[in-house]
Design a protein around this nucleic acid. Structure first.
Lengths: 147, 147
DNA sequence: TGGAAAATATTGAATATTCAACAATTGAAG
DNA sequence: CTTCAATTGTTGAATATTCAATATTTTCCA
């Protein structure tokens, strides 16, 4: 046991592949749920992070929502057009822009959270409570060990 | 214990987010390794799958390498230009195209596999043998339970 | 059999992402 | 202080991905 894959082992034995596969599948399911609100997964992330009510700089936000800076800038542009979020220049450091959720954004965020939670409940149902928590724990520690 | 996230829990408690985060990080690391050969992760997957020497239809291959059909078609176009793979019309079913690796592709595949294996060894070093295997097991069963 | 429906792969237009360059502001060193 | 480097965010061009439409072949069934 415990061997890393050999040169000739199938791709399905690689951790990188299994992660990509699982992520793709779970993300696809979540995307389907969120499509009820016509919103991509990334916008749910953005709204959720901003829902703490604090201002978040673009850099901070990009890290938190797993997007590159230019991609985030453009997605935020759309969300500003939709009046879900707004920009405020940081008075402490005028290079920075602080992002906030609007009331409309908060309301949408609530509905999206329900959909996301219900997806996870659905996963727990078929995958099991214990496995889900164990998997989360292992993913967290993998991420920790990678920094 | 064992609760799915509440409406107001941080995004970092969602399985979907943890998977995306872990996948992003591991994929980024692998990408850096493979950049030594100037090849994106998806091409490693394609070459690896085709390296069993059998012909694989585009549909089959798209599933295996986690790409949509049109994206795969265009990536294969590039790989054909680079003489890494080639197309043969399936004689049994002329709607299908069978993909094969060239010798050049095989040689590249070997080098890429080394890089991928060494990445996974590196993960095992810092993350641990036991955790790695347990994580793989859980990911496999998550994927199973999602079909 | 004949013809409609399904399966397979590709294409082109629309959309999204990324890379490199830029502008603005701050920090820091002389 | 002043200038130069680093940080932050945006932009535009280049690239990649996706969606819808198409072409081809096979399957099904009436």
């Amino acid at each position: 046991m415990a061997k890393p894959p050999k040169d000739n082992s199938p791709i399905t034995e690689h951790l990188a592949y299994l992660l990509a596969q699982a992520n793709r599948e779970i993300n696809r399911q979540l995307e389907m749920r969120l499509s009820k609100e016509g919103v991509p997964v990334e916008q749910w992330r953005i709204l959720k992070v901003l829902s703490d009510g604090n201002g978040h700089s673009m850099g901070e936000l990009a890290d938190a929502v797993l997007l590159n800076h230019p991609t985030l800038t453009k997605m935020v542009d759309r969300m500003v057009s939709d009046a879900l979020v707004y920009r405020v220049q940081d008075p402490k450091d005028r290079r920075k822009v602080l992002m906030f959720v609007s009331d409309r954004g908060k309301a949408l965020s609530k509905r999206l959270n329900s959909l996301a939670v219900s997806q996870e409940e659905h996963i727990v149902e078929s995958y099991g409570d214990k496995s889900t928590n164990e998997l989360k724990r292992l993913l967290e520690s993998l991420i920790d060990s990678s920094n």
